[in-house]
Computed example of a mutant assay.
Amino acid sequence: MRWIGAIILLVGMTAIGFEWARRLSQRSKQIRELTTALQHFEAEVMYGHTPLIHVANRISSTVSSPLSQFFKDFGTRLKEGNHDVQSAWQESIAINWDKTAMKIKEKEALLQFGQTLGQHGRYEQQKYIQLTLTHLRAEEINAREEQLRYERMAKSLGFLGGLLAIIVMI
């Protein structure tokens, strides 16, 4: 019975390490995908003169989950008409943020961007999109460095932590 418990503990701790490593790799992937989505957003606003509801729906169909759900929620809130653009953006972030692997810095950049949505003309809006993209690109570089530095360690620590717990218990 002890050995079964030890194996379960080892597998559980190893799974925790692998989950930590997965989140590290997902963060850089999601930031990259968000950057692409905002570039799409910029093109639709600047050159397509597309309303935000349609932009949000188009982007939600091109990105993967959880970002697709964020843009879908944003478009739905705009369509309902109960929210202004900024509150729809902020609420969509608040509801969907925990599903992402991104950190607070990316959230702050998106919230700042959301405060400018619908407030300015197209060219001023483009400047805010470019500013947000700059922030996100810097965070993507940091996320990749963090991933390279900690991903392997996270996997190893999960397994070794499980072994340590088994040794201490025996």
Score class of each variant (00 low, 15 high):
Gln86Tyr: 07
Ser68His: 07
Asn142Thr: 09
Gln147Leu: 09
Glu108Gln: 15
Glu19Arg: 09
Pro66Ile: 04
Gly114Asn: 09
Met1His: 12
Arg32Lys: 11
Gln126Ile: 03
Ile31Gln: 02
His83Ile: 00
Gln130Ile: 09
Leu24Pro: 05
Leu111Ala: 09
Gly161Leu: 09
Asp98Tyr: 08
Met169Leu: 15
Glu91Asn: 13
Leu78Pro: 03
Lys29Gly: 01
Glu91Trp: 05
Trp3Tyr: 15
Ala6Phe: 13
His135Thr: 06
Ile170Asp: 05
Ile8Glu: 06
Leu78Trp: 02
Val55Asp: 02
Ser60Leu: 03
His49Met: 10
Lys105Val: 09
Thr35Asp: 07
Ser61Phe: 07
Ser61Thr: 15
Gln90His: 14
Glu124Met: 11
Ala94Gln: 12
Ile166Arg: 04
Ala88Arg: 05
Arg122Phe: 08
Ile93Gly: 08
Glu33Tyr: 02
Arg23Cys: 03
Gly162Leu: 03
Asn96Ile: 03
Trp3Ser: 13
Pro66Lys: 06
Gly17Asn: 04
Val85Leu: 11
Leu131Gly: 07
Val45Gly: 01
Gln115Ile: 00
Ile129Leu: 12
Ser156Cys: 04
Met102Ile: 11
Glu80Thr: 14
Leu9Arg: 12
Gly48Arg: 11
Ile104His: 10
Phe71Thr: 02
Ser61Pro: 00
Ile8Met: 12
Val85Ala: 13
Arg22Gly: 04
Thr62Arg: 13
Lys105Met: 01
Phe70Asp: 01
Ala56Lys: 02
Glu151Pro: 01
Ala143His: 06
Gly17Arg: 03
Leu148Trp: 01
Leu136Val: 02
Thr35Ala: 07
Leu111Thr: 13
Leu111Gln: 14
Phe71Met: 08
Glu140Arg: 11
Ile95Tyr: 09
Ala101Ile: 05
Ser64Met: 01
Arg152Ile: 06
Val45Cys: 11
Ala101Cys: 10
Phe71Ile: 05
Glu139Arg: 06
Glu151Gly: 02
His83Met: 10
Asp98Lys: 15
Ala21Asn: 02
Phe71Arg: 02
His83Arg: 08
Phe18Pro: 00
Ile166Ser: 04
Glu91Lys: 14
Ser25Arg: 14
Ile59Arg: 04
Val45Phe: 04
Arg144Gln: 07
Ile93Arg: 07
Leu117Phe: 05
Arg2Asp: 12
Glu146Cys: 01
Ser156Gln: 07
Met46Tyr: 04
Arg32Cys: 01
Leu164Val: 14
